[in-house]
């Protein structure tokens, strides 16, 4: 049900763009107003959300240790799994953010007769996740050629690298293939595994459909007969970026669909689970050093509580303590 609703939502968005930018010719709206508005929502939304998180303190020092602590000099401690210094924490975070370290640990459990539990390595989620995110980033950077002038060397270098195999014309980018496979795998996995299907929400399917639609409209414009006039696309982008927006001649409906879906994605981003992008930096189980006994962590909202003092304790038990010949503060 949630799957169908999410799919319908994505289809609706495409129809809106077709009717809006195509049939009704609202190119100014779809090419200028909506991109500006959604970009503003994206930037404002992300900052707003992060600031909101940051306004809640980290009262306690709660890193999850995934390796040996630093104690004796003769026991080698795990600098990246149980970091002691800020630098080591940075290392841990880098592994986590760039290579999804924790997900790499993933296992799957099987209950055999006996009962016997067997744990197997399960790297597909890690692989698909990593493949998707890296491809997405590379594609994003490649798109800079539409957004900056002159195009910096690293964008060209990335294009060359990404088109390494020189198949087809225009050259098929590796990331274009990888992102599609990864997204389809992530979708398939959610639908196939009954556990995942059980707890997946519309909010889990919708971004997948949205990203797939964005990818497919992109492919259509690059690899098929529906090719876009790139100069016109860049002209639009440059106009937007220099706050002199114009609608150049030569933009097709397919481009507006692509642009509209991207606009929806960035507007949706700050208010959805996609905020894990920022959240991963702020997770106290990962971004704190395991040095809580060496360095005091302060809780800003700490308050005094009612405690039971030794005096109250002795007052209650003085007689029996005396009878048991235990030392007393007051006889």
């Amino acid at each position: 049900m949630t799957v169908i609703i999410s799919l319908l939502a994505a289809v609706t968005l495409i129809l809106i763009a077709i009717i809006g930018a195509g049939t009704l010719g609202l190119q100014y709206l779809f090419g200028i107003v909506i991109p500006y508005a959604t970009l503003a929502a994206f930037l404002f939304g992300i900052v707003y959300r992060v600031v909101k998180w940051a306004r809640s303190p980290v009262p306690f020092h709660i890193p999850t240790t995934c390796g040996q602590q630093k104690s004796h000099p003769w026991i080698k401690y795990s600098k990246l799994e149980s970091p002691f210094t800020a630098l080591e924490v940075t290392g841990r975070m880098a592994l986590e953010i760039l290579f999804f370290r924790s997900l790499f640990r993933n296992t799957k459990v099987d209950l055999k007769k006996g009962p016997k539990l067997v744990y197997g390595s399960e790297k597909y989620l890690w692989l698909a996740g990593l493949a998707f995110h890296w491809s997405f980033l590379i594609i994003l950077v490649r798109h800079l050629r539409f957004f900056v002038e002159p195009v910096p060397f690293f964008v060209a270098a990335l294009q060359t690298l990404d088109g390494f195999f020189q198949i087809w014309l225009p050259i098929i980018y590796i990331t274009d293939v990888v992102i599609l496979v990864a997204l389809l795998f992530l979708l398939f996995r959610r639908l196939y595994d009954p556990k995942l299907r059980y707890f997946s929400l519309a909010a889990d399917y919708f971004p997948l459909f949205l990203l797939l639609s964005i990818a497919v409209t992109g492919y259509l414009m690059r690899y098929t007969g529906a090719k876009a006039d790139l100069i016109a696309v860049k002209e639009l982008a440059m106009g937007l970026l220099s706050f002199r927006p114009t609608i150049p001649v030569g933009l097709d409906t397919i481009f507006f669909i692509h642009l509209f879906l991207v606009s929806v994605l960035i507007a949706y981003f700050p208010f959805s689970k996609l905020m894990h992008m920022a959240g991963v930096f702020m997770s106290p189980t990962r971004n704190l050093a395991n040095n809580s006994r060496a360095k005091r962590h302060v809780n800003p909202w700490d308050y005094d509580v009612k405690v039971h003092t030794y005096e109250e304790y002795e007052d209650e038990f003085r007689e029996v303590m005396k009878a048991a010949k235990m030392p007393l503060e007051k006889e």
């Binding site: 050629r145 002159p150 195009v151 964008v155 060209a156 294009q159 060359t160 100069i231 860049k234």
Partner: peptide
């Protein structure tokens, strides 16, 4: 155009 679009 090729330079503009970083096409080689």
């Amino acid at each position: 155009c090729h330079n503009y679009m970083a096409v080689s």
